[in-house]
Design a protein around this nucleic acid. Structure first.
Length: 603
RNA sequence: GCCCUCGUAGCUCAGGGGAUAGAGCACCGGCCUCCGGAGCCGGUGGCGGAGGUUCGAAUCCUCCCGGGGGCACCA
């Protein structure tokens, strides 16, 4: 076994954020970086080896930092490159070390060392991902549909991204508190309750329970807009709701209950772990709003402006160039969503004692949230600014690159999109998988269809707007969910054909060989899993994990094409290749799982 | 008007200080009696523009152009 640097030798301060670098020592890149780091640090304060994967054929990694270091020292780059690469035990883990005239150091891993790393990975059920040294309590705010309003494609993004981030956080050992900030309070409930009464409680509840939320809302809105009398009733109803009138609260509860039941159906369809226990809606914070405002007042932060109670924060202006306030209490005495969002910070840091509060909310809310964070910081509720995170995401667009809507201008219901994806996946699966029975086929279709939609959403940089294209999502070619699920199935099918159990090859007891270039590339790729998962979490970007899995699947395909497994030249090679297949399936499956995507065993 | 964000191949997207900018789809040309052909190999084709910083810029800075969003009592 190779002697490894102890974890406390890892570069301190490499991660100034809250996720201390917990990368397993089975990762060759981390081992080499740890070997080089002290050498660089000795030559110049804070010098970084800048170890990166190499795209040059025959090499696995390259050291870029030697050039910058040479500049700093005023010496020739190739000289410094030679210096940093000769003094350390790189030879122990690299079979080839090349210094280029420009000052790069190219490294090729020693086969035995690489094989040892992969064996260790195969023997580790966590695949090299270590539990965080300091587990954090993280509140993740995501999904947040509105009562009596349909869930559409926009909710898909926050829900799917938030779910994946929760899974990643938990996998790294952090304590995650999911908060589904449902829109279940506010002035619109006067209108909704009055409509519920007009249409009849039973009928209204029925409409909601069968999922016709948009129909309910639209008609309520239409009735409200059309009649001053309804508007007056709605206004009085809001007052009754705010003052805790029992009957009004009961009616409100009917709306909430029917909607929540519907949300649960959608989450079940999506395979999202959110339950009604995770709902911490706007109504939950309502009782706190007075205290929030009072505390801001006590701290001298409140300014009255045009009758509204405001907090002014430097850096924002109105259209006219005047200072822009965060309005915490409207001139009519009511509270807006700014106050509620302040209350979430107040509660999450004050009562829950969160280390991090994550808001998976669309990019248009950036300014609003930044202002809320700034006010919370001013009020002393936010221990430090970087502990509140806005994980923003772009809009969902249609094929025409406009906001994703039907020709008639209506938004698509999320459930309809999901159903169509499952149906198309079912057609694709039926066309090929003759050995599946009906119930297996339905189950696979669900995993593939839902996985396709989720993967499409997760696989692009979340800040960009993305084009919702069902055809591309459910395609088995390209960077798609179905392709990756299929890649994993192909890994596993070898075992089924041979009557073997992949688990027998995962204990780490099967010696790995990396003789063929395709075996090597696959092996190196496999060891990159912990770093990929870590990178995805660090930047709140699941797409980095997607990119890794897709790349890994590519290496597996090349391996599969070039290296016969069951017909390997000898028994040792066959077992090694079976182990690589089993490990590939496991890494792909684990990766998809962290994205919230299920993996069928057959398809 | 100010602020944020995005602009990479015909299309959908990676790459966010390192060497010759990568995939998939589409298109063109080849290959394969072989563990799952939902295959393999090759080709055409690109960083919106102009400056600047740097040994090195798609990446960082400034300006311009273009798309999207936000800019006090709706959430």
């Amino acid at each position: 076994m190779y002697r490894r640097p102890s974890p406390d030798k890892l570069p301190a301060g490499a991660r100034p954020d809250f996720f201390y670098k917990d990368v397993h020592m089975a990762a060759p890149a981390q081992i080499i970086a740890a070997l080089l780091q002290p050498v660089f640090a000795e030559l110049a304060e804070g010098a970084d080896p800048m170890l990166r994967p190499s795209s040059r054929s025959g090499f696995d990694f390259q050291v870029n930092g030697s050039i910058a270091l040479a500049k700093k020292l005023g010496r020739r780059p190739d000289e410094v490159a030679t210096l940093v690469s000769s003094g350390v035990a790189l030879k122990e883990v690299c079979e080839s070390i090349e210094v280029t005239p420009q000052g790069f150091v190219n490294l090729r891993l020693d086969d035995a060392f690489l094989a040892a790393c992969v064996s260790e990975l195969a023997g580790d059920s966590r695949l090299g991902v270590e539990i965080a040294a300091t587990p954090l309590t993280v509140v993740v705010d995501y999904s947040a549909p509105n009562v009596a309003k349909e869930m559409h494609a926009g909710h898909l993004r926050t829900t799917v991204i938030g779910d994946s981030l929760c899974r990643l956080l938990e996998h790294f050992g952090h304590r995650v508190i999911r908060e589904n900030h449902v829109g279940d309070w506010g002035t619109q409930f006067g209108m909704l309750i009055e409509y519920l009464l007009d249409v009849g409680e039973t009928e209204g509840a029925h409409e909601l329970s069968v999922g016709d939320l948009d129909g309910f809302y639209r008609q309520a809105r239409a009735a409200f807009d059309a009649s001053p009398e309804v508007q007056e009733r709605a206004r009085r109803r809001v007052v009754a709701l705010q003052s805790g009138d029992a009957e009004t609260l009961r009616l409100w509860g009917v709306l909430v209950e029917e909607s929540v039941g519907y949300f649960e159906e959608v989450y079940a369809k999506l395979g999202i772990g959110l339950t009604r226990d995770d709902i911490v809606g706007e109504s939950f914070y309502n009782p706190m709003l007075g205290d929030v405002v009072a505390e801001l007042d006590a701290k001298g932060l409140l300014v009255e402006s045009d009758g509204a109670k405001c907090v002014f924060v430097d850096g924002w202006t109105t259209r006219e160039g005047d200072p822009l306030p965060l309005i915490v209490q409207k001139s009519d005495g009511g509270y807006g969503y700014a106050t509620t969002d302040l209350a979430t910070l107040w509660d999450r840091f004050g009562r829950i004692g969160a280390d991090l509060a994550v808001y998976v909310v669309g990019a248009p809310q950036a300014q609003h949230l930044a202002m809320c964070f700034a006010v919370a910081a001013k009020a002393g509720w936010l221990p430090s600014p970087e502990q509140a995170v806005h994980v923003a995401f772009g809009s969902v667009l249609g094929a025409d690159r406009k906001m994703f809507k039907s020709r008639a201008g209506a938004t698509f219901k999320l459930v309809d999109l999901l159903d169509e994806a499952v149906q198309r996946a079912g057609e694709a699966v039926s066309a090929r998988s003759l050995e599946l029975n009906d119930s297996e086929r339905a189950s696979v279709a669900r995993m593939v269809g839902i996985g396709a939609v989720k993967y499409a959403d997760l696989s692009t940089d979340r800040l960009r707007d993305y084009v919702f294209d069902l055809d591309r999502m459910v395609s088995f070619d390209g960077n798609t969910g179905p392709y990756l699920q299929y890649a994993r199935v192909r890994c596993l099918s070898i075992f089924r054909k041979a009557g073997l159990d992949p688990a027998d090859y995962l204990g780490g007891g099967v010696p790995i060989q990396v003789g063929h270039p395709a075996e090597r590339d696959l092996a190196v790729a496999l060891t990159g899993f912990p770093a990929a998962a870590s990178a995805a979490l660090e930047s709140w970007s699941p797409h980095k994990l997607c990119a890794y899995i897709y790349e890994l699947a590519g290496f597996y395909t090349t391996f599969f094409e070039n290296c016969p497994v069951l017909k390997a030249p000898n028994e040792e090679s066959k077992n090694s290749r079976l182990a690589l297949c089993a490990l590939s399936a496991t890494v792909i499956g684990q990766g998809l799982s962290l994205l919230g995507i299920e993996s069928p065993e057959r398809m």
